[in-house]
Amino acid sequence: MRFLIRRLVSFAVALLGLSVVIFAALRILPGDVAVVMAGLNSPPGRVAQLRAEMGLNRPLPQQYIDWMAGLLTGDYGKSMLTGQSVTSMVVERASITFPLIIFGLLIASAVGLGLGVAASLATGNGVRTFFRVFGIVGGSIPALWGGLLLVLLFARGVGLIGLFPSQGFPQEGWGSPGAAFASLVLPALTVGLIDGASLMRYTRSALADVMHNGCMIEAMACGYTRAQALIHVGLRVIVPQLVSVAGLMFANMVTGVMVIENLFALPGVGSGLIADLGDRDLIAVQSELFMLAAFFLLVGLFVDVLHRVLDPRLRRSSEGRM
């Protein structure tokens, strides 16, 4: 309980800190936000108008407090370009990014855990070498290149075996689930395989560490075969560790997800943010950065709590040792 409270406080403080950093990043622009947004060659009146519209002539602390007050009441501002509210923009984009991340994580877990266990049980030299090469090389491929290779193999039109679309997301979105799903297959595979390879390496080395642990020998002494003991006991013992690693991996995976969204022309959160940045839609960028920061801090919080729940050794027992 004390852990949870401490962790929640640190979450709130970190979020507050990051909001200040994000706010500051947009205020130390050369010139100011209005000048940048209006662009060069804009009539002088336009800049003054923007400045007034965005409240940039107020003192900085006032601006920050207004922004935060808006965020707290769910007002994330409007895009200067389209007039659409940032919240609805992000929700729309997230409907692509979230499934992509979930599919990616599922593939990564299946590949990472499955091959990690298989690699730990492998006895042949050839098989061991294969797993080792897969783990090292798979985790070293840039997401951009990995995506391209998959496109060259499986994309309709370009690939050797044309199976899936390589570009875009259906106009009607999830209205046509088949097409929407198909367009996410290659992006999710790219992200999932690359991170699955890293997870496999980690699973293998963590299993190698528990392999000679007393609890593995005890499990075998109770009547499990080596393979059964590894799956039923070894894997369960390292799960809390793996959750933490997966959490860190998730943070690393995001660079890949953003690249992949751009490569496959998926209008997701990442590619949207990059587009807004390119369009100098800074009000939207500011709120989107904050939302992302909040999301990742939340994921970190969730992972830490889950680690506690899964590992009874870390739980504070009410009775203590007798």
Binding site: G247, F296, L297
Partner: peptide
């Protein structure tokens, strides 16, 4: 602990 989940 809190900041480690922020991606590069």
């Amino acid at each position: 602990d809190a900041l480690i989940s922020i991606p590069t």
